[in-house]
Every structure is written in C-alpha cells, then in structure tokens.
Amino acid sequence: MGEAFIVHAGNPKNLHSYEDVAANPQAKLGLVSGTMEGRYAQAVGIGNGQIAMFPDVPSALSGMRAGRVDAFAGTALTVQDMLTKAKDNGLERAEPFSGPVIDGQVAIGYGAFAFRKEDEALRQRINKELAAFVETPEHLDAVASFGFNRDQLPGPVKAEALCHHPDDSL
C-alpha cells in the first residue's frame, strides 16, 4: 500500500513527497497519531514543529479545511476515501507523488495477519487458502467496494522477504 498526500487546491506549497515537506520549513504536515506516517516523517527528517498530530481522520480533515496544515499524509487508500467523502473542491490529492525513501528504498506498508505461535497449523492452513484466493476475480470483487484494486496486491513479494526479525511469526 503506497502513500499519498492531500493538499489544498493547486498545491500552493508544491508538496509531492515527504522529502518536499522536510525541505520546506514553512510547510506543515498533518497526520493521524499512531500511524506509520509519523515514522516516515521522522525518518525523512521532518521536524517535530512541522508536524500536527490529529487523533483521527475526521479531525485531520477538519484541520486541512481550517488551514491548520498544508498537507495531510496517509495511505493512498485513506487519502482517496477522505477525498471521496469530503467532496471538497478546496482539497485535492498531490499529484504526482513519490513515497518516502527510507534506507534507500521506497517505503510501502503491507497488510498482514498475526497468529499465536502455537497455532502453526492454522497459520499454514490460512496461508494456503489465501494463496489460492488472492487475485481471484472473487477476491477483487469482494474488496472493490473498499477502494482496493489489483494495484495494491503484493504480487510476487513474500513475507519472508519483508520480515527480518527472528521472532516474527509471519
């Protein structure tokens, strides 16, 4: 799942990436507290004074409308959903947009399941069923109404490639 920004119409501060925000001390970035976007912002060197933490998505939208921040950072999905629901001509998605580059790679968030370690059998079984289900027309159909499509599918990337921690049970 890639990242996206909401900006004011016409993108007056010309923000197309986290790095753009870091490079412009006048720019203020809004995000929802406790999300990955906070870590991205930190990782690309956006100062604390440039960040406004909103407790939830509706507050973040209000903050954008009130001009409290110049951009709001969220997953592409969240951003699209907000813009669709807000129906606000004063706001738009920043285009083009490039995701934050961290350790030389564009950061992407992956969805995952967590299991108890004892439930190894269950994990294997679900992995098997998922492998069979993912990318089927049935699957795409089911998630379409939430705004997902083929673009967000992980493709050939495997959990083993993403998780390095020895304790990770994925």
Partner: peptide, 9 residues
C-alpha cells in the same frame, strides 16, 4: 473543535 477547526473558517 469549534475554536480550533471552525473559527479559522
């Protein structure tokens, strides 16, 4: 909410 988000409008 009103003072922070609405009054600026």
């Amino acid at each position: 909410f009103w003072v922070y988000f609405a009054l600026p409008l």
